[in-house]
Design a protein around this nucleic acid. Structure first.
Lengths: 361, 361
DNA sequence: ATTAGCACTCGGAAGAAGAGAGTGCCAGCA
DNA sequence: TGCTGGCACTCTCTTCTTCCGAGTGCTAAT
């Protein structure tokens, strides 16, 4: 059934007002706020129908209306105004983005922090797990007992480790190992480093005194770690300021879920194409987030990598503002890190609505 | 004034019981728990005196007694039983410690996580800020537009950065720069890298096309970052389970303080010699922690560096258990990372009491 | 010095009453 | 047919009151 224009207006008013006030919205309030030319009584009828359709809920008989998850979904998909950032806001973001661009992981964490501060919700920054291989191998000889392993990954990340030996090695040996590893270990993934490969490398270099396996072990662990992707969470405590999380147990559930970075990847994997994605309450795969909403934006982190920033908040999140901000940050990051195929309209706020609205059927 | 033996026993019983139950302790309860051969009435008299002396407090006239900060301090310094860890506990810790020893920063974060999980309180892991210098300088040539800067710090940390150039350089140039930097930039601190030094290096190598300043800039930022020390916080949300932090505002204050890693250093600097240190409520320098307690242990992270692990909890923290666990973890870390001057009695639980008890005067 | 007994105090729980916001429905009106 | 004002009703939230009990402090007896 198609929903009337007036109903849409009323629904939008309810959601907007509820987002602002966190309190059930009554017919009178709507009549005052939204300029529909009709009386509270008329609105009551409409509200009643919207409730029947499942877009609104009533905490109890004599309370105002509150949006249902389905109501939020409809609001996000069709009703909400696409917010533009004010000039100050976008300039502030740009300034913060350009500020420091040192290390990638640092950068990610900073982007998360920025998102958190801007929106006032806890923020997560994720790098999508990916398959990595070693592109270049170097061993730097320091002294007879010490050398550094430097790995350049295919995605241009660099890993290193200082190795100290309980015995002495000569510089030529280090060089020899370096070229051997360069020959055998580059371009392959973690699971390709088999005991067979290691032992054949071991045979090729004589008298390695176990060095081969040390280096191989580090290589494997570096590959594993790179592949795992990383997660940074900031601003957990800002949840506590939201009225819906005044119950410490509820807050605890969500915050400790967020702290478990391994599980966070689930969120990332629940679809990451499209620039901004909104997941509303029960749509979350994770049980713990069923009464929270997640807004996230993915960005091009260069070298074919995708990064993700997102915030977690109550259902009553200010979707429009949050989406605009995340979009802007993500676009900025894509521009700074991306590999040329940067988005054409950086600075323009295009919000791709989510498509998984199989709820209001 | 010297406090009687019986008073001590009673005080200890009050603190123990309050730590357990989180509720004001009455004379009857003490009589039942502590095996002093006397009646509640006698205990009431003693409680009354302990209250007058400032070791106990009464939430209101007709409630039981609660330890005052001074009471906790006395308890920690003189009364509390030095707990030994059970065999299972210490084995579990050892297993976890030996598990992964990859990167130092990872290690620190893991140690913090371990402390948090073991104690059930939020945990922080800090590395003390320190002056660092570069020991060894290497540039790895990758291709005409790419090279890696590898810095080996005096403290054996390794930093690296991939540099991509908008123009081409030849391998000999990279090598030349490498040895120039090795000559000029090693062994000096961040503040010694002056524009003068940079420009003289620039002159020594001809046609560097700005490379010198790129490398110098990275060196400075790496030095700054190493010096800053790092902070990892985990398990913030476990605070929410403590009855004294059911007030979301209170919890929010503490948690957001913990999230601000820069401020955390204050805690670290408030005295870190001695193996385990207990800071009780108002003794905290930070306003935000005035009604929380902090227990921390420092460990030898090798190369003259000190690390710090600590937990934050309510005044009613189980000091004895927490101290024992932190001590054990810190000793373990010292053993694993330390530089030989490892503590003699690893495994033995020696708790050095705090000495800043200028409170009960 | 210790103990038993007793009156007193105070906070927290439970219940009662009232206020207020909002609904649903009905009858009248354009 | 759709909108409106009016009105009775419902249900929560707040406030007030009452009551209970744990625990104290004091006193007199041992």
């Amino acid at each position: 059934m198609e929903i009337s224009q007036r109903k849409k207006k009323i629904l939008a008013a309810v959601v907007d007002e509820y987002i602002r006030s966190a309190e059930p919205v009554g017919s009178k309030t709507i009549c005052a706020k939204a300029n529909l030319g009709c009386s509270p009584a008329t609105i009551r009828n409409e509200l009643s129908e919207l409730t029947a359709l499942g877009y609104l809920e009533q905490p109890h008989t004599s309370a105002g209306r509150v949006p249902s998850p389905q109501g939020y979904r409809f609001y996000v998909n069709e009703l909400m105004e696409r917010q533009k950032l004010s000039l100050e806001e976008s300039e502030a973001i740009n300034a913060r983005l350009n500020e420091k661009m040192e290390r990638l992981d640092q950068m990610m964490a900073d982007a998360g922090k920025l998102a958190g501060q801007l929106t006032g919700y806890p923020a997560v920054a994720l790098s999508a797990p990916e398959k990595v291989t070693v592109r270049r191998f170097d061993l730097i000889y320091i002294d007879a007992n010490t050398f550094i392993i430097v790995l350049l990954m295919e995605n241009n990340k660099v890993c290193n480790k200082l190795v100290r030996l309980p015995f002495s090695v000569e510089q030529p040996m280090i060089q020899k190992l370096s070229s051997l590893f360069n020959a055998g270990f580059t371009g392959i993934g973690e699971e390709d480093i088999t005991p067979l490969l290691i032992s054949s490398t071991e045979r090729a270099a004589r008298d390695t005194m176990g060095l081969t396996s040390i280096i191989a072990a580090y290589t494997i662990s570096a590959l594993t770690q790179s592949r795992a992707g990383a997660a940074y969470v900031t601003g957990e405590s800002s949840l506590l300021q939201q009225p819906e999380f005044r119950d410490p147990d509820k807050a605890h559930r969500v915050i400790s879920y967020l702290s478990d970075s391994s599980r966070l990847m689930d969120v990332a994997n629940s679809g990451d194409r499209g620039s901004v994605k909104v997941i509303i309450g029960p749509e979350n795969v994770a049980e713990e987030l069923r009464d929270s909403s997640v807004v996230m934006a993915s960005y091009d982190a260069g070298e074919g990598q995708r990064g993700l920033i997102g915030v977690v908040g109550p259902l009553r999140m200010d979707y429009s503002a949050v989406a605009a901000k995340l979009q802007y940050i993500a676009d900025g990051l894509s521009r700074l890190l991306g590999t040329g195929e940067a988005p054409a309209g950086f600075g323009k706020m295009i919000l791709k609505g989510d498509t998984s609205d199989d709820e209001h059927g």
